[in-house]
Amino acid sequence: MVSFLRFLINGISLGSVYAIIALGYTMVYGIAKMLNFAHGDVIMVGAYIAFCAISYLSLPPLLAVLCAMAVCTALGIIIEGLAYRPLRQASKLAVLITAIGVSYLLQNSAQLIWSANPKVFPSILNFGAIKLFDGSLVITSQTIITIAANIVIMLVLTMFTGKTKMGKAMRAVSEDKGAAELMGINVNRTISVTFAIGSALAAIAGVLLCSAYPTLQPTTGSMPGIKAFTAAVFGGIGSIPGAMLGGLLLGLIEILGKAYVSTELGDAIVFAVLIVVLLFKPAGLLGKPMREKV
C-alpha cells in the first residue's frame, strides 16, 4: 500500500513535468497549427542555462531559473521569427521538417558549447522532506515544488487565456487566423507571444526535470519532448486543461507501468495507452471533435 502511494506520488511528480512541457506544445499547436519538434530541445537549453548560472556564476536557484526563462523566451522568439514565420503559408510538412532542423541545430550547438559528456545537475530544490508512515513514505521538497509549480502555472495560464486581452487574442487566432486578423488582432505578435510563453515554460520544465533526473546532456530533452507531445495529443491537442490531464495521466501510467508490469516496457505501455485512447476518442480526452465540411 505504501509502495503504491510512493509510485502514485512519483507518477504525479513526473506527470507534472510532462504537463508543463505539454502546455508549451499544445499552445503552439493551437495557435500556429504546427508540431514544434524543437520544443524538447528548448527544455535542454533551459536546463543548461540554469546549470551554468548555478555552477559557474553561483547564482541563487531562483535567479538561475529566471535567467533560464529569460534566455529560453528570447530563443523561442528568435526561432519563431527566423525559422517559422517565413513558412506561415507553406505546407505543414515543410514546417515540420524545419522544426526538426531547428531541433538538430540546438542539439548540435549544445554539444559544441557544453560537450557531449553528461553533466550532473545540482540538486537545487532539496530543502528536506516530509516523512510519513514512520519514514517509509518520503515526499521530497522537490516533488512538492514540482506539483505546486504545475498547479500555479495551470491557474495562471487559464486566467491569462480567459481574462486578458492577449489571451483572448490567442484564442481568437487559434480559432480562425483570418477572422482574427480582420478584427484587428496582430497575428504575428500573438504567435510570438505564444512561443515566448511556451519556451519560458520549457525552461521551468527543464530545471524541474533535471532536478529529478540529474544527468544533463544535449539529448536530454528529446525523449521527454516526445512524451510530452504524446501527452498533449492524449489530452486533446490545443486544449490547456487537456495538456494538464494528459501530462499527469502519462506520468502516472509510465511510473505505475514500470513498477507493476515491466521496467523495460514502460515506454511501450505509455504509447499503447495513447493508441487505445485515440481509437475511442480520436480527438483526445478533452479535445473538440473535428467536424467535416463538404
Binding site: 525559422a83 517565413p86 513558412l87 505546407s91 515543410a94 521538417i97 532542423g101 531547428v102 538538430y104 541545430l105
Partner: peptide, 16 residues
C-alpha cells in the same frame, strides 16, 4: 551535423 541542420533549415526556407 551543425552544418547539416543549417543546410536543412535554409533549404526549407528557400524552397518555400
Amino acid at each position: 551535423m551543425l552544418v547539416y541542420a543549417i543546410v536543412l533549415i535554409l533549404v526549407m526556407l528557400a524552397t518555400n
